[in-house]
Amino acid sequence: MTAHVKPKRPAPLSLRLNKAERKRLEKLAGDQPLGSFIKDRVFADALMPGASEVLDRYQMLVRVLAALGENDVFANLDAIAKAIEAGDLVLSDEQEAQIAASCLLVLEMRDDLIRALGLKPPAQPYDGDY
């Protein structure tokens, strides 16, 4: 009787990155584990022609959505709208309408980006009174 011999697995691959490279890689990967992200990027063309282009577009959408969140755009627009409602910021009706339209456009852009990523947008935090 012969013993069952397990085939040897290849040694793991090690990749050294400086802090900036690691930070960029983590940002590009988003919520995806780094190993999976790297494998997907390296082998995307082999899996499906044009897949790397789709992945690149997806990553661009992720970066734009992240930039919207990182720059406090929503919080700043919300603060302006609340100041208008409280009477702390006096504007003409036209200026108030322009700010309200801007708020809605930013929310629509956010929702479009989220949908383009295949996700469901969150419930709107605004009640449309702006």
Rank of each mutant, 00 (worst) to 15 (best):
I80L: 07
K8Q: 15
E85Q: 12
P122F: 06
K82H: 09
V73P: 02
L55K: 06
G87F: 03
A67R: 11
V64L: 06
A100R: 00
A11K: 04
S36P: 06
K120F: 07
L89P: 00
P49G: 02
F43A: 15
A81Y: 04
L104N: 04
P10T: 03
Q98Y: 14
A51D: 03
D112S: 13
L117W: 12
L107I: 05
A44V: 02
N76V: 04
R9S: 14
D72S: 06
L117V: 10
P122C: 04
R16H: 13
R63Y: 12
Q124S: 14
A86W: 09
Y126F: 13
N76Y: 03
P10G: 06
Q59H: 13
S92Y: 03
L77D: 01
P10I: 04
Y126H: 07
D93V: 09
D88P: 00
L117T: 13
F43L: 13
Y58A: 13
K23G: 05
E53A: 12
L34F: 06
L68Y: 13
M60N: 12
L28A: 08
L25N: 07
A86Q: 11
R110T: 06
L13P: 05
F74K: 00
L65G: 02
D45A: 06
P125E: 12
M60S: 14
K120S: 11
D88I: 04
D31P: 00
E21D: 09
R22T: 05
P12I: 12
A79T: 08
L105A: 12
R22F: 10
A86C: 08
K27H: 13
R110L: 02
D111F: 02
M48A: 11
D31L: 02
P125S: 12
G128T: 07
K8W: 10
P125K: 08
I80N: 00
L89W: 05
D45V: 03
K23L: 10
D72L: 00
M60E: 15
E108T: 13
L107W: 09
V73F: 04
R110S: 09
R63E: 15
R41L: 09
D31I: 10
S92H: 03
G118Y: 15
V73S: 02
L107Q: 09
S92T: 13
G30T: 01
D111H: 02
L17C: 10
S36N: 14
C103M: 11
D88Y: 10
R24P: 06
A44N: 07
E108Y: 10
